[in-house]
């Protein structure tokens, strides 16, 4: 019953550099803050998607990674519509949670904001990607101490074997204070690269 799955494409964004399918495509000054880096990428890609500027850093990172990935994957719109999204990280939305907490710590200066609060959920990144690409497939957000290639492989395979989705956007997108790291890959029955949890772990470690 187990199926041999393939990787269609993979993308990594960290240290202000972007690589696609193992090849470096963009490198920026390491001293740039993440938000400046993200803004530069947005402009250079001419994305014309104003919602981007409302997003918190976690969603911006997930959004940009998925942009490069979907561009490279060239999927049919019918397939995109039913793509499953299985993402994970360590810090959940704590980077924005701390901002929201700051707005309520002082009772004399109490200013919680819906624009911040809505980003205090890590799965919002799945919502942002879904809206951008009109994806109405399966969703799940997992939290683990580090990138758990086994968990993601189990769940992506389960979705494909149980015929919930034929293509799964998988990955790890973490933002925590000044550190960030994104790694996404598209898995399906057909694709350019072999997939196993060992292969994906190697790619993650080496890129």
């Amino acid at each position: 019953m187990k199926k041999q799955l393939k990787i269609i494409a993979y993308c990594r964004i960290k240290n202000n550099a972007i690589s696609l399918n193992g090849k470096s495509i963009i490198t920026k000054d390491k001293d740039l803050s993440f938000s400046d880096f993200a803004k530069q990428i947005y402009k250079e890609k001419q994305l014309a998607y104003p919602k981007f500027f409302k997003m918190d850093n976690l969603c911006k990172l997930a959004f940009l990674t998925s942009e490069f990935l979907f561009e490279a994957a060239k999927l049919d719109s019918e397939i995109i519509k039913n793509t499953g999204i299985v993402l994970s990280n360590k810090a959940s939305s704590l980077d924005t949670d701390r901002n929201h907490q700051d707005t309520i710590n002082d009772k004399d200066n109490y200013f919680p904001s819906p624009a911040v609060f809505v980003y205090t959920l890590a799965n919002i990144m799945i919502g942002e990607i879904s809206i951008r690409h009109q994806i109405k497939g399966e969703n799940a957000f997992f939290v683990s101490e580090k990138f758990n290639e086994t968990l993601i492989e189990h769940y992506a395979s389960s979705l494909i074997i149980n015929r919930k989705s034929s293509h799964i956007l998988c990955g790890w997108v973490n933002v925590d204070n000044n550190n960030y790291d994104a790694f996404m890959y598209l898995v399906a029955e057909e694709g350019s690269y072999n997939y196993s949890k060992e292969i994906i772990k190697n790619i993650y470690t080496q890129n």
Partner: peptide, 11 residues
């Protein structure tokens, strides 16, 4: 079971 996204609005 099924778990699908609206692809419409985040909140």
């Amino acid at each position: 079971d099924g778990s699908c996204n609206d692809a419409n609005h985040i909140s």
